[in-house]
Amino acid sequence: MELSVQDRDGVRLVSVAEPRIDAFVAIRFKDRMREITAPDPGGGTPGRVLLDLGRVEFIDSSGLGAIVAAMKQLDGAARLELAALAPAVDKVFRLTRMDTIFTIHDSVDTALTGAGG
């Protein structure tokens, strides 16, 4: 599961570099997210994790479950937010009402600048 990570303005930005989060990769996605969002060796934890889904074209219920799991395994008050959902991905979040659970931004830029979305 190809995920790239960078810290920007105190936000841990995780970009999914694959077109699908489905049953085939769901467990690996969840495991990678656990590594990425684990406390740093110094004990610090990312307070805000932004998942960039801009390159994801398809997600199924297993992929959705893996994103929920990734959010649940975050430490305490840390938040998992989502950005740049393609129409097919957005549809799954809306149908399952998971769009009411996650903060969803139009793009990574709007999420980082806080300019609405």
Binding site: D60, S61, S62, L64, G65, A66, V68, A69, M71, K72, V92, L95, T96, R97, M98, T100, I101
Partner: peptide, 20 residues
């Protein structure tokens, strides 16, 4: 669809397939 009520720790990670 499974209920999304309740705290973060109890959010469902499955059960969406058939409802979808």
């Amino acid at each position: 669809f499974p209920s999304l009520a309740g705290p973060k720790a109890t959010l469902p990670e499955g059960g969406f397939g058939w409802p979808l």
